[in-house]
Write a protein that binds this DNA or RNA. Structure first.
Length: 428
DNA sequence: CATGCCGGGGT
DNA sequence: ACCCCGGCATG
């Protein structure tokens, strides 16, 4: 209270200056563009809602020429909406997937984990718009003969979603299924699963009618169906887009759902063990992609990939940089290595890792390759590692605190040096 | 031996 | 997180 009398006077100039400096720093940092991108995304969402109303009732369409209906549906790529019973089920799920998918990879922000968790544990009362979780889970469902799901845009749309829409959209149009799909160059067909019948139609309505009349022996129109047809046909995608394929195959989830037999424990040494150590938890969870199980799974799946990445990168890098530098620069490591030999060696090491790192992008697809390659690397990398450094930092050449200041002025050393750690002041 | 620093222990 | 030291590797 009594302090404020001390103002003006000689102090003011300094104070002003200080403030200015401080402000400048703050202002300089302020320019943050993050919010802008968010807004942009939101816009997309809004536009996305437009095509939703286009969805039509199957009843009308069935009355119409079924071909026409097929055309309309295909064009709109909203076919799955047709059936009422399955739609209900998938509605909620697809919604949450979409949300999750979008938020997950797109915004790695904090809301990630918590959001995804909520949405899955209690999909019904999702009051929280921020609900992430990788689209992988969607794929797991695709194999199920549920048609509407696929149509809604699960399979290929899952991976794509993040770029298209955003959590907000789903929250806004909450009750809408949002059947938007990649109006890409991708065709969706529906195949009858009735044994000995491989009929393929281009619309869900068509295939349903086919099943209803041919196999179920019902003559009435769609309105009197109980949705049983849904179980007798599946959706197949004639896809021009390779991305979708790659992604769908990428997820380790989908296969496991279809075929319980887990991935065979390959008898590979080093690397296989390494990657396995990361994986077990996820695979165990894989069993139940539904509600609870999915949360950890979906989140862990991508991270697993990253982990693997890292490992590979690390392994690849370590052998390369160390042996090459030590052998090439110094001349030869130690023993009876002829210069010719050493050089050829270093080359052989360098090239594989490079290729490998680049290709790592699609893991599961090139599993065989990856493993082979990695194995090779591991084998090659082990000998040089043992020979030279890895553990020790070889030693810094430049003068360090100790030399510069001497033992007498030990208090002038950088902390690291004082702690007998790697010098931080004179880095090499 | 002097030096640089990792691993590990203490507070 | 800070501080220190044993002990190894290296020049």
């Amino acid at each position: 209270f009594s302090f404020h009398k001390v103002e003006g006077g000689p102090l003011s100039p300094e104070a002003v200056e200080e403030q200015r400096v401080a402000d400048g720093k703050r202002v300089g940092r302020d320019p943050d563009t993050r919010s802008v991108s968010l807004l942009e995304q939101k816009r997309k969402v809004v536009s996305s809602s437009i095509d939703v109303p286009h969805a039509r009732r199957s009843e009308e369409e069935v009355d119409m020429d079924k071909v026409t209906a097929a055309m309309v549906l295909t064009t709109l790529s909203t076919s799955p909406l047709v059936r009422s019973p399955p739609v209900k089920v998938n509605e909620g799920l697809s919604g949450s997937w979409k949300e999750n998918g979008s938020a997950g990879p797109f915004t790695p922000s904090s809301n990630n984990s918590s959001g995804g968790y909520w949405s899955w544990s209690a999909p019904s009362d999702q009051s929280n718009p921020s609900t992430p979780s990788p689209p992988l889970s969607a794929d797991s469902f695709k194999p199920f003969r549920v048609p509407s799901l696929g149509g809604v845009g699960s399979g290929p749309a899952g991976p794509e979603d993040p770029s298209l829409d955003e959590q907000d959209g789903s929250s806004l149009l909450f009750d809408e299924p949002i059947p938007r799909k990649r109006k890409n160059s991708m065709k969706v067909m529906f195949k009858c699963l009735w044994k000995n019948c491989g009929k393929v139609l281009s619309t869900a309505a068509g295939i349903q009618r086919h099943i209803r009349t041919i196999h179920l022996g019902r003559n009435c129109d769609s309105d009197c169906s109980d949705g049983e047809e849904d179980f007798y046909y599946t959706e197949i995608k004639l896809n021009t887009d390779s991305v979708a394929d790659g992604l769908s195959s990428l997820s380790p989830v989908s296969p496991s759902v279809l075929s319980p037999p887990p991935p065979p424990p390959s008898p590979l040494p080093a690397l296989s063990q390494l990657s396995d150590s990361h994986r077990p938890p996820q695979y165990s969870d894989t069993k139940e992609p539904h509600a609870g199980g999915t949360t950890p799974l979906s989140r862990s799946a991508p991270s697993a990939l990253y982990l693997i990445h890292t490992d590979h990168a690390y392994q690849a890098t370590a052998p390369v940089s160390i042996p090459s530098s030590s052998s090439n620069a110094t001349g030869s490591p130690s023993t009876s290595f002829t210069p010719t030999n050493s050089s050829s060696f270093s080359i052989s090491w360098q090239s594989p890792p490079v290729t490998f790192t680049g290709t790592t992008v699609s893991p599961s697809k090139s599993h065989g390759f990856g493993e082979q390659r990695s194995q090779t690397i591991a084998v090659l990398s082990s000998p040089p590692r043992a020979t030279t450094a890895l553990s020790r930092k070889v030693r810094g050449e430049g003068k360090k605190c100790r030399k510069v200041y001497g033992m007498e002025n030990r208090d002038m050393w950088c902390t690291a040096c004082r702690w007998k750690k790697a010098c931080q002041r004179f880095t090499d």
